[in-house]
Computed example of a mutant assay.
Amino acid sequence: MPNTLEVADLTYGIEYRAILEKWAVDDFSEVDKDPNAIWEMQGGTIGELQEY
């Protein structure tokens, strides 16, 4: 997966890589924040995860 990021033209490549590297080693300590970070990078307008 990291090799794919190296050849892809991603505006937020560093941020994506950091999230994916955490997940690859089962580090889900920010699982409440990571999906929203990806959502924002993709220009999300609906569906943001909310804390309860």
Rank of each mutant, 00 (worst) to 15 (best):
M1K: 04
M1N: 04
M1Q: 04
M1F: 04
M1L: 07
P2R: 09
P2N: 10
P2A: 09
P2S: 07
P2K: 11
N3W: 11
T4N: 12
T4F: 14
T4D: 13
T4I: 14
L5T: 03
L5D: 03
L5G: 02
L5Q: 02
L5P: 01
E6Y: 13
E6C: 14
V7Y: 06
V7A: 13
A8K: 08
A8Q: 11
D9F: 03
D9S: 12
L10S: 06
L10P: 01
L10W: 03
L10R: 02
L10H: 03
L10T: 03
T11K: 15
T11Q: 13
Y12R: 00
Y12T: 01
Y12M: 00
Y12W: 00
Y12H: 05
G13P: 00
I14V: 05
E15S: 10
E15Q: 14
E15D: 13
Y16K: 01
Y16M: 08
R17M: 05
R17G: 02
R17L: 08
A18D: 09
A18I: 01
I19T: 02
L20D: 02
L20N: 02
E21N: 09
E21M: 09
E21D: 11
W23P: 00
W23D: 02
W23E: 04
W23Q: 08
A24M: 15
V25L: 07
V25Y: 04
V25G: 05
V25Q: 09
D27Q: 11
D27A: 10
F28L: 13
F28R: 12
S29R: 13
S29K: 12
S29N: 11
S29V: 06
E30M: 09
E30S: 11
E30Q: 14
V31N: 14
V31T: 13
V31K: 14
V31P: 00
V31W: 14
D32N: 11
D32C: 07
D32M: 10
D32Y: 08
K33E: 12
D34S: 08
P35M: 07
P35Q: 10
P35V: 04
N36M: 07
N36E: 06
N36V: 02
N36I: 03
A37V: 15
A37M: 12
A37I: 14
A37E: 14
A37L: 15
I38P: 01
I38F: 03
I38V: 15
W39P: 01
W39I: 10
W39H: 11
W39D: 04
W39G: 03
W39F: 15
E40N: 09
M41A: 09
M41C: 07
M41F: 06
M41N: 03
M41G: 01
M41D: 02
Q42A: 14
Q42D: 14
Q42G: 11
Q42M: 15
Q42Y: 05
G43C: 05
G43A: 08
G44E: 10
G44A: 13
G44F: 06
T45K: 10
T45E: 08
T45A: 07
T45P: 00
T45N: 09
I46F: 09
I46Y: 10
I46R: 12
I46P: 00
I46N: 09
G47I: 01
E48P: 01
E48I: 12
L49A: 13
L49G: 08
L49R: 12
Q50C: 05
Q50V: 09
E51R: 14
E51T: 15
Y52D: 09
Y52I: 05
Y52W: 03
Y52G: 07
